[in-house]
Design a protein around this nucleic acid. Sequence first.
DNA 1: TGAAAGACTTGGAATAATTTTC
DNA 2: GAAAATTATTCCAAGTCTTTCA
Length: 661
Amino acid sequence: IHYSHKHKDKYKDKEHKHKDHKKDKEREKSKHGSRYWMGMKSLDGKVKKEKENGFASPPHMKIEPEEDFYHSPKLAKSLKRERDDDNDLDFKPKKIKTENDKKAKKRKQEDEFLFLFLWEEERYTDGVKWKFLEHKGPVFAPPYEPLPSNVKFYYDGKPMKLSPEAEEVATFFSKMLDHEYTTKDIFRKNFFKDWRKEMTSEEKAKITDLKKCNFTEMSEYFKGLSEARKAMTKEQKLKIKEENERLLQEYGFCIMDNHRERIANFRIEPPGLFRGRGDHPKMGMLKRRIRPQDIIINCSKNSKHPEPPPGTKWKEVRHDNKVTWLVSWTENIQGSIKYIMLNPSSRIKGEKDWQKYETARRLKKCVDRIRAQYREDWKSKEMRVRQRAVAIYFIDKLALRAGNEKEEGETADTVGCCSLRVEHIKLYPENEGQEYVVEFDFLGKDSIRYYNKVPVEKRVFKNLQLFMENKEPDDDLFDRLNTSVLNKHLQELMDGLSAKVFRTYNASITLQQQLKELTNEDENIPAKILAPPKTFEKSMQNLQAKIDAKRDQLANAKRDLKAAKADAKGLRDDKSKKTVETKRKAVQRIEEQLMKLEVQATDREENKQIALGTSKLNYLDPRISVAWCKKWGIPIEKIYNKTQREKFAWAIDMAEKDFEF
DNA sequence: TGAAAGACTTGGAATAATTTTC
DNA sequence: GAAAATTATTCCAAGTCTTTCA
């Protein structure tokens, strides 16, 4: 086949240029990952044509490289060499499931296409993420529209016309008036300080006390606007929808290496007041408006780069194909960089996701060894080794996050494993009949409280006592450890291993086990798996409230019935008899409703068992669920909604019913 | 070597769209 | 057919981890 050489040469070229083998991982990744993505919506119609060949449709052949898709870098390398040496264009996957011979010839063609594409994908070595990238740039926040003159701001009871700059910031506050934030001291203090920066000197002189500011008219005005928006006619709503769709079509997609890909966040974040989570020292600060001169554009040299709005300039246009972002800017609250990147359905995100689960599957193979190792290390002579070993145990057993250190005063005070302080744990040699109990109580990511009482192994317990000796409550529990030391160690234990891999691994392996356990042949499976909503607890509470209300209602109805009966007994007329009947019916009806609610409640509670809830999107290998669906004939739509199906398209395509995590 | 910068994933809250209930 | 409840989507803060820099 003629087109082979060109590619071959390209490949060889690369090989010579890059002698370092650090990135073998990347190569190995694309080897099998491309299977799905290469068949995806393509721009030049090339793949589409192949699709007519039956190639890009769900595969009826299956490639089964040894070792569950994973090659150690070394192996990957040698496989590659082999091919290279053979000048191998009729490279065949090791095993092909053949259904019949008729299709064999066709399949061979497919293999050649497959090979070609694998070839193509293999170019991405040394961190290169794409070859071609073109997009339309970001959509900026709409400019500020001054308030109508009848909407006034009052200072100290008197109306006061603000300059547009000061007024805009005031509107940010007024829009949050109903929010708890605006009652918090830090929020108010930060807001007022930043607001004053936007004021004219006259305004600054006059407005000196936030308590004297009255934003209610402004607040009412915005409430009115949102009411009006809700009350719009069908046509008006449709018009807005169409406009949004137009914007999406124009700015919401980019072209990356022959694919038209959806962009995740093509709109620049509008200005507003920073809302931190928990006790964030910066809450209330002004998030300033992003202008074209703040924006760095990233695209390929040979693309048509986006034009800045008339009369403006980009900060920079660069061509860095070692990164995946299209647009970036520096945010003014923390000074961190924000990015515009692709949607989870894109090749670049999907491949990465897939890779993540492959890493977790590799952990499965050596987790026993690693566990044995850290248990051994609990006995180490070296303090840092012991601390490391106990930390890994927590990460593995309790799914704690790594816990990077954070700059004090810049963010809320939250911790993870490595940043735990003495004050965050309590030790109980005995507690409620269990030995060696550790009580965790700390604020984790997003200032969400982690509270847990767990019995641990004696050695762990003794070590913790040791770590806490002679320390103040606010001292680090693991004073000889940080995340970079920890991850360096993990990396040595397994290529690609870091703390968060344990979360992925443990979540996925547990899901698989649970599915196996809880699904039995003769049962009518389906309802079980239906994922409880993220708001599970809340909806459970709602339901409970309903049940309680219904009970009250029932009690009332019964009382009424009794009263009516008594009446009827006394009066003995038709009318009161009738009332008794209706009351009786009412009681009956309410009883039925109550029953229904109670059934609902137990159903929901039981469903929790295989809760696919929140972790579904980030920690559970989608192939497990996909395989389960295929095995039990459950439509995938029951598990994943549209967005999720797009994100996991690779898994839906890739996983067979016998997939094992 | 350690801090800072950079890139990318994770996850809650707000908001929009859709479905259910009354 | 409106209101309420539920579910989907968007938004963006807060993490993790890698790379760069001094």
